[in-house]
């Protein structure tokens, strides 16, 4: 397990996280501890979510070095603002990934201001490659569920959702690409996500 130089107390706390725990502590348990300044919990949270943060950042910004920068920024921001996390409004991993997606998209859009958009557009047009397979069985099942649920959307819903999420496009850009009116794209995005939500069985407590 990598350790930080300097502070032996810190290193001790970092090592106190079991590196091969059978069930890694989940993000929802860790984040409140991170909010209290628990660095070991932060290291464990990093291990629990950074793979998805980095993967998402790579998918959206399409540049490995920049994706790493995004990941570092996001994780430090998670550390800094952990106290703002409100479990009543969603899961810890969704909170982190929302931050990551926003940050990645911001990066793409600011870059877009001075580079040619065309190459990125055509790159994302070649579609979302679903080919990275990871060994973890639970994670794989979850991903299969996501794919299965994505597969239940209409083609336009799916295109709209994936172009926006993986491609970092605004709904205006999506409308242009799909040659679909703006209000329709907005509706398709929402309808598609509602269908996915129901397929994944996601429900807030207290929803009527």
């Amino acid at each position: 397990m990598p350790r930080m130089s300097g502070d032996p107390e810190q290193a001790r706390r970092l090592r106190s996280v079991p590196p091969d725990a059978a069930t890694p502590p989940n993000a929802d348990e860790l984040l409140p501890r991170v909010a209290r300044g628990d660095e070991a919990a932060f290291a464990a949270l990093y291990d629990a979510v950074a793979g998805r943060v980095l993967g998402l950042a790579r998918r959206v910004v399409r540049d490995p070095a920049q994706a790493e920068e995004v990941t570092q920024e996001v994780m430090v921001e998670v550390w800094r603002t952990a106290g703002r996390f409100d479990a009543g409004r969603g899961s810890a991993s969704a909170w982190v990934l929302t931050m990551a997606h926003r940050r990645a998209v911001d990066r793409v859009r600011s870059e877009q201001a001075h580079t040619n958009r065309a190459s990125r557009v055509s790159a994302s047009e070649t579609h979302v490659p679903y080919d990275e397979v990871v060994e973890d069985v639970t994670a794989r099942l979850e991903r299969e569920q996501v794919r299965r649920c994505l597969g239940r959307l209409t083609p336009v819903q799916r295109e709209a959702v994936t172009l926006a999420y993986y491609g970092g496009h605004t709904y205006r850009e999506v409308a242009e690409k799909l040659r679909t009116p703006l209000p329709t794209v907005k509706t398709r995005m929402r309808d598609g996500l509602i269908r996915m939500r129901d397929c994944l069985g996601i429900e807030m407590e207290g929803r009527a």
Binding site: R52, Y130, M196
Partner: peptide, 27 residues
């Protein structure tokens, strides 16, 4: 709810191991 839904789309982008240097720098 839709935020939760959308974040599941990131399940499909996971990288198995983040570079050790990144972990160290971040911590």
């Amino acid at each position: 709810e839709l935020g939760e839904t959308v974040s599941r789309l990131a399940d499909d982008t996971v990288v198995e191991a983040t570079p050790p240097g990144l972990r160290e720098r971040t911590l």
